[in-house]
Simulated assay, not measured.
Amino acid sequence: MSPRGVAIPDLRERLFDAAERIVAREGAAALTSRAVTSEAGCAKGVLHTHFGGVDAFVAALVLDRFARTAAHAQGLPARAGQGTVAANLTGVALGLLDSLDPRVVGLAVTSNATSRQIRDALAEGSPGFGAIQDALTDYLDAELRLGRLPDGTDTATTALALVGTVHHLLMTGGWAGAPDPRAQTERLVALLVTQ
């Protein structure tokens, strides 16, 4: 346990990682401020001090994971011509699927305060699905110019279809009996880049 008043390096990431471990191990219902700080080895009040409460904490976690995926996607246009188009798109799509446990997403959408904070942050420019879609469109445009996609490929619609589908799979991936979202994503990418 870190002593009170002592700065904790990488506190946000430490708390986010702790929350993800709790959800993976015990489910979303176990995600409380006390559980997170205990798992992270921090003082009990640190989550409230830094985030103002669990709703804001979950919103920050979701936004952080979306921003990571957006940063990965934004590097994709520079890799045009490398690897295969399908492998590059699949990498970003699976990264988005893996960015959050579907049960964390469930927490975010079932809490009005959390979902409002996420919507507000995205509206103010925090990177999310729109940034990922824009990066994929830029990447597909670059691949089209290189002749690695069929002439006439609608790159913007292709990016929208991929991001929209992955968003849907991320939102519904925690349902019992749901098909494997990875396999579905790979099939979609194969379909999109061969049309």
Rank of each mutant, 00 (worst) to 15 (best):
residue 112 N to E: 14
residue 136 L to G: 06
residue 130 G to K: 12
residue 138 D to G: 08
residue 114 T to A: 10
residue 118 I to C: 10
residue 106 G to L: 06
residue 104 V to T: 01
residue 119 R to Q: 12
residue 116 R to D: 14
residue 97 L to N: 06
residue 142 A to P: 00
residue 118 I to D: 01
residue 134 D to V: 14
residue 133 Q to D: 09
residue 130 G to F: 00
residue 102 P to I: 12
residue 131 A to Y: 00
residue 105 V to P: 01
residue 116 R to I: 10
residue 126 S to M: 11
residue 114 T to E: 03
residue 139 Y to G: 08
residue 133 Q to Y: 03
residue 137 T to L: 05
residue 123 A to I: 01
residue 113 A to Y: 02
residue 135 A to K: 01
residue 117 Q to F: 03
residue 140 L to K: 03
residue 127 P to W: 00
residue 105 V to Y: 07
residue 123 A to F: 04
residue 97 L to F: 06
residue 102 P to N: 13
residue 143 E to R: 07
residue 111 S to V: 15
residue 140 L to A: 02
residue 132 I to Y: 05
residue 126 S to N: 12
residue 113 A to E: 15
residue 137 T to I: 07
residue 111 S to W: 08
residue 132 I to Q: 06
residue 137 T to M: 10
residue 100 L to S: 06
residue 146 L to N: 10
residue 99 S to D: 08
residue 122 L to Y: 01
residue 115 S to E: 14
residue 131 A to I: 02
residue 120 D to N: 15
residue 143 E to Y: 14
residue 140 L to M: 04
residue 129 F to Y: 15
residue 100 L to V: 06
residue 125 G to V: 04
residue 125 G to F: 03
residue 142 A to Q: 03
residue 119 R to H: 11
residue 122 L to R: 08
residue 114 T to D: 02
residue 97 L to W: 06
residue 102 P to W: 05
residue 138 D to C: 09
residue 130 G to A: 13
residue 130 G to V: 05
residue 133 Q to T: 14
residue 104 V to C: 02
residue 143 E to G: 08
residue 139 Y to K: 11
residue 112 N to D: 14
residue 112 N to V: 12
residue 112 N to S: 14
residue 112 N to I: 12
residue 108 A to E: 09
residue 101 D to Y: 01
residue 101 D to R: 13
residue 142 A to M: 11
residue 138 D to N: 12
residue 129 F to K: 06
residue 116 R to W: 05
residue 136 L to M: 13
residue 118 I to M: 06
residue 137 T to C: 10
residue 116 R to E: 13
residue 104 V to N: 00
residue 111 S to I: 09
residue 98 D to K: 10
residue 114 T to W: 00
residue 114 T to Q: 00
residue 122 L to E: 07
residue 132 I to T: 15
residue 107 L to N: 05
residue 115 S to T: 10
residue 133 Q to C: 14
residue 124 E to F: 03
residue 106 G to Q: 15
residue 130 G to E: 12
residue 113 A to P: 07
residue 104 V to K: 01
residue 100 L to G: 02
residue 118 I to A: 08
residue 140 L to S: 02
residue 107 L to E: 02
residue 115 S to C: 06
residue 125 G to T: 04
residue 145 R to M: 13
residue 130 G to D: 10
residue 120 D to E: 13
residue 127 P to A: 14
residue 114 T to G: 03
residue 114 T to N: 01
residue 121 A to H: 03
residue 120 D to C: 06
residue 114 T to M: 02
residue 138 D to Y: 01
residue 132 I to E: 07
residue 99 S to Q: 11
residue 114 T to H: 03
residue 141 D to S: 07
residue 107 L to R: 05
residue 143 E to I: 11
residue 117 Q to N: 07
residue 143 E to F: 09
residue 138 D to W: 03
residue 108 A to N: 01
residue 129 F to R: 15
residue 125 G to Y: 04
residue 116 R to A: 15
residue 134 D to P: 00
residue 106 G to E: 12
residue 102 P to H: 09
residue 102 P to F: 10
residue 146 L to I: 04
residue 136 L to W: 04
residue 139 Y to E: 08
residue 116 R to S: 14
